[in-house]
């Protein structure tokens, strides 16, 4: 008799504990799953436009200067080289995402955040950036500048 009770007792307790434990886990999941999903921001459709017309004229960009413009929802940079050629790159530094700028005194592209240098082909030439800037294609139609993703 006594042995039987001793044998059965832990099993029953074990069952109740298991039951309680799984319901506790299920309860926690039912609370934390929606909260977790809630905290993850919904994906907003990225601007797929592969081409953008710039809001300034080709004549406004003097040689040895650069200008930031909106390409989709990210910044890009248009540079007129000292030789007069127009070039465009993504302005997002490949190191830690700062927005780069054109340095007339150096004659190339520079990032103020961690001192990254890129040449006029977008190549990373000094400092911490690990990759070149993405190049874009520049077309001038009359006075209008059109920048598109190079294929």
């Amino acid at each position: 008799m006594a042995e039987e009770t001793l044998d059965r007792q832990p099993t029953r307790r074990g069952f109740v504990n298991w039951f309680l434990g799984t319901s506790a886990v299920a309860f926690l999941l039912s609370v934390f799953y929606p909260v977790g999903r809630y905290l993850i921001p919904p994906t907003v459709a990225e601007s797929t436009a592969g081409t953008v017309r710039l809001p300034f004229k080709a004549d406004d960009v003097k040689p040895n200067t650069g200008q930031i413009f909106k390409f989709g929802n990210r910044p890009a940079i248009l540079v007129r080289t000292p030789a007069g050629e127009l070039r465009a790159f993504s302005a997002v530094c490949t190191h830690l995402n700062c927005t780069v700028q054109y340095r007339p005194d150096l004659g190339h592209i520079w990032c103020a955040c961690h001192n990254g240098h890129f040449d006029l082909n977008g190549q990373n030439i000094a400092g911490p950036p690990p990759r070149p800037l993405d190049p874009y294609a520049v077309n001038v139609r009359g006075k209008q500048i059109v920048v598109s993703k190079s294929t």
């Binding site: 930031i68 530094c93 103020a112 950036p129």
Partner: peptide, 27 residues
Amino acid sequence: PFASAPVGIKPEWYFMFMFKTLKYLPS
């Protein structure tokens, strides 16, 4: 969001040693 990072940009001083380290590290 559509302007270049300003010259002389710095974090708060207590992040400076990490910021400066990242600046020194090669690519």
